[in-house]
Write a protein that binds this DNA or RNA. Structure first.
Length: 415
RNA sequence: GCACAGGUGGGUGAGCGGUUAAAACCGACAGACUGUAAAUCUGUUGCCCUUCAGGGCUACGGAGGUUCGAAUCCUCCCCUGUGCACCA
């Protein structure tokens, strides 16, 4: 284990891309202590085993965890398998069906596969909170609840708001932060990471640790919530504005290119290791006339390199330029076969006639045939580059051609 | 348990017996313009059948009912909130 870097250096590295560090002086102390004793800090972040598809938004936090690892500290990846059974902490949804043991194990597995694209497995301690909670008795839970008061709970903005608006707040939601705090206590961690939306819960953790007699409460590090592709709401699967880390390079490239210029700087900050200075420099260049698209291409390549490799990033760039800047069809458009019987147009012509609206629905280029018909009237459909308006088109069975609907395209063969 | 207020399309939210596939706004999608950016303008925005035309079927928490006709009225049920009661 190499010696720890000077504390100031560590602090700078940790600070980039965080929203808030509660208590910075305490963090400094701990870093100093770990440097003196040679003992790494224990840094923890908790995860719900219910979201197996990670997206870039999740990686902001994971990257921060990785930064601690880079500095030689221990990252604790806590799977909230027990708390997942309690249910949804946001209260938006009705209680989800409890996950079975196998489901949790499977989810955790796919989770880790993805997480290890960022974290160093060697320096990661994977834990589950069922370790302690499965042995927690009802009495223990009541004792835990006794550590906190209702008015303390209502300080949380979300609860406060819902309380005022006469919206439901379930009891189990109040237990959630407590359980999370107990996790911190059991893990004996020095710091906990979470998104800014978790700040309240993280602060509760400090209180719980104290209440259970921990010598020092953990340091809280919050990371900003990354905006999704819309640039407004946080990236989330339910808003459909996410870029998944398991997506194919080309897909990823396209999505990154479609974010707004403003948002791009945010992505540079939270998703790359380029220093703020470097980002400012690019920004200045752009404001002085450089085409921001060039920087966006650079961003896309960097991110793709992180999750795939450099060659893939290079290829994605080439493909993108070919397809969108030179308007050429890429050579490996996805091929879909569509049975003739499902798209045949009724007619007495001797040629094979196909209903285009149905065809694009069947090929997955539109959600329904009705929608397909609408797209047709909007000049959104092209066959081999040629705009089609008429839903009936001659199409010999066995032949394939590139069908483009808006931005999406597929090679379709009628069989 | 009782009373009151609510439950409408992806979201917010109108409608309160027919002209309502359901206003408006947002979002989403498409077209123009571009750098697959933003902004702007235009159009579309339940499903299915039908080569424009036209037709059919679902939809306003759930189930029944009243009506020629219900998202709109009645009954019961479910869910949410508030107040009261009960319990402590």
């Amino acid at each position: 284990m190499p010696a720890f870097a000077p504390v100031d250096e560590q602090l700078e590295y940790i600070s980039k891309g965080t929203a808030e560090i509660i208590r910075l002086p305490e963090l400094r102390e701990r870093l100093e202590r770990s440097r003196a004793t040679g003992k790494p800090m224990r840094v923890y972040a908790g995860f719900d085993p219910t979201a197996p598809d990670l997206h870039l938004g999740h990686t902001v936090l994971l990257r921060k965890l990785k930064h601690f690892q880079d500095l030689g500290h221990t990252a604790i990846f806590l799977i909230g398998d027990f708390t997942a059974m309690i249910g949804d902490p946001t209260g938006r949804n009705v209680t989800r069906p409890p996950l079975t043991e196998e489901e949790i194990t499977r989810n955790a597995g796919t989770y880790l596969d993805q997480v290890y694209r960022i974290l160093n497995p060697e320096q990661t301690e994977v834990r589950r909170n069922s370790e302690w909670f499965s042995r927690f008795s009802a009495a223990d839970f009541i004792r835990l609840s006794a550590k906190y008061t209702v008015s303390q709970m209502l300080e949380r903005e979300d609860f406060h708001k819902r309380f005022q608006e006469e919206k439901p707040i379930s009891m189990h939601e109040l237990l959630y932060p407590l359980a999370q705090g107990y996790d911190s206590f059991m893990l004996e961690c020095d710091a906990q990471l979470g998104g800014t939306d978790q700040k309240f819960n993280l602060m509760v953790s400090r209180d719980i640790q104290r209440a259970y007699g921990a010598a020092l409460p953990e340091i809280v590090v919050t990371t900003p919530l990354l905006e999704g592709m819309d640039g407004v709401q946080k990236m989330s699967k339910s808003y459909g504005n996410y870029i998944g880390i398991a997506e194919a390079p080309r897909e990823m490239f396209g999505r990154i290119m479609s974010i707004s210029d403003d948002l791009m700087w945010r992505y540079w900050e939270l998703l790359t290791d380029i220093s703020m200075k470097g980002i400012e420099a690019m920004r200045r260049e752009a404001s002085e006339g450089a085409n921001p698209m060039l920087f966006k291409k650079g961003l896309a390549q960097r991110i793709i390199t992180d999750f795939h490799d450099e060659a893939a990033a290079r290829q994605a760039l080439d493909d993108w330029e070919k397809q969108f800047q030179r308007h050429e069809a890429p050579d490996d458009v996805e091929l879909v076969e569509v049975p003739y019987s499902e798209v045949r147009a009724k007619g007495d012509s001797e040629a094979d006639l196909v209903r285009l609206d149905k065809l694009i629905a069947r090929a997955g280029l539109a959600p329904s045939a009705s929608e397909g018909a609408r797209l047709l009237t909007q000049n959104a459909v092209r066959m081999d580059g040629e705009v089609k308006k008429d839903p009936i088109v001659a199409w010999q069975v066995g032949r394939d051609c590139v069908v483009k609907v808006g931005r999406r395209m597929k090679r379709v063969r009628v069989v």
